[in-house]
Each structure stands twice: as C-alpha cells, then as structure tokens.
C-alpha cells in the first residue's frame, strides 16, 4: 500500500458525516424544533443547551431513564452485602458483647441501611457516568465552528447521520424551515 493511497483512505474515513448541526437563540425555538423532529420521525438527534431546559426530554420523545433500575439493583446488592458481612464476621469471629446473641441483627441494621445507601449512591453516580459514556474527551459536535456558544447563548440541535431518516439535503431543509442558524454538516 503506497503512502498516498493510505492518506486518501484515512481522509475518506475522517470525512464520514456525523450529522447536521444548527442552533437556535431561545429554548422555546429549540423545544419547538425538537418536537417537529420527533414528529417527522427522527430518533437519533440530540440537543445541547447552556442550561437545563425543563420538558426538553418530553419534546424530544426520550424514553424513561433506566437509572432507577440500576440504583435498585445496586441498593439491593448493598443490602445483601451488609447482611453477608455482618453474618460472616459474627460467625467467624464470635465476640460476646453485653451478653447479646452472636448474630444480633438489631445492632447491624445501621450497617445494612448505610451499605444500601452507599451502594445506591455508587450505582447512581457511576451508572450516570457509564450511561453518558463519560469521561469523553472528544465528540464530533465540537467541530461546529460556533459550538463554544453552547455554553453561552446558543441552543444546539444535532441530527445524527445514523438516523434512518437522515438525508443530508432533506434534513438540512427541515432544519432551515425550523429556523436553525449556521447549519453545518460535521464529520466524525
């Protein structure tokens, strides 16, 4: 494989489109655009805003979060771990304390409670990182020239190329109709 050919191939790979990006100047316009995209049948689109916009997940039609199940599983694991821990330490290394029976569960309820809470918190914290695929040091949206404004005054919407309804010209037209500014096709 000669050098020029290889370079070409790399460039072709790099030029694969990630999606179309544009932005709005108010949360209301973004909300409206997301509802229209949802109604037009788009599934893989995302919004980036300078602050949390309440109700946006409903406008985008996002499914309910799976976090509660992760937290429930983690909390149950914590409870069972605490029961196992207190059971085995009191059987393996029995100590008579103020004449109480070996496995005095009453005294261990705070441990069971605390481990349930601790594991639930871990589940919520690390579950959030995992589901958001964090830490993420690069994302294609950063290629949009005005993307820094997503932390300031611009409400971005990105329609991803992997969406089955994605069509570079039709999607661009839809975004234009919705009033998006500076519509750019970013690459991966």
């Amino acid at each position: 494989m000669d050098k020029a050919h290889r370079h070409e191939e790399l460039e072709e790979e790099a030029a694969k489109p990630f999606g179309l990006m544009g932005y709005f100047l108010t949360p209301g316009e973004l909300m409206h655009a997301c509802e229209k995209l949802k109604n037009a049948g788009y599934k893989n689109f995302d919004a980036q805003t300078p602050f949390p916009v309440h109700g946006l997940e409903k406008a985008m039609g996002l499914p309910p979060s799976k976090m509660p199940w992760i937290v429930l599983a983690a909390g149950t694991t914590g409870l069972l771990s605490a029961i196992a821990l207190t059971w085995f330490v009191s059987i393996d290394y029995p100590l008579v304390i103020s004449g109480k029976p070996s496995f005095s569960y009453q005294a261990y309820i705070p441990i069971m409670f605390e481990l349930t809470v601790l594991f639930s918190a871990f589940g919520a914290f690390f579950g959030m990182w995992g589901m958001n695929r964090l830490p993420m040091f690069y994302h294609p949206s950063m290629k949009h020239p005005s993307f820094p404004r997503a932390t300031d005054d611009a409400f971005f919407v990105t329609v991803e190329a992997k969406d089955p309804k994605y069509d570079a010209s039709k999607t661009r037209k839809l975004l234009e109709e919705l009033g998006a500014r500076e519509i750019v096709e970013v690459t991966e």
Binding site: S98, G99, Q106, A107, I109, P110
Partner: peptide
C-alpha cells in the same frame, strides 16, 4: 422508630 428502639435495646 428504630432510633428509639436501638438505643434502648443496646443499653438494655
């Protein structure tokens, strides 16, 4: 309820 019970149970 458990806070009340635990202290009394433990002190006995």
């Amino acid at each position: 309820g458990f806070s009340q019970f635990l202290l009394i149970w433990y002190a006995d």
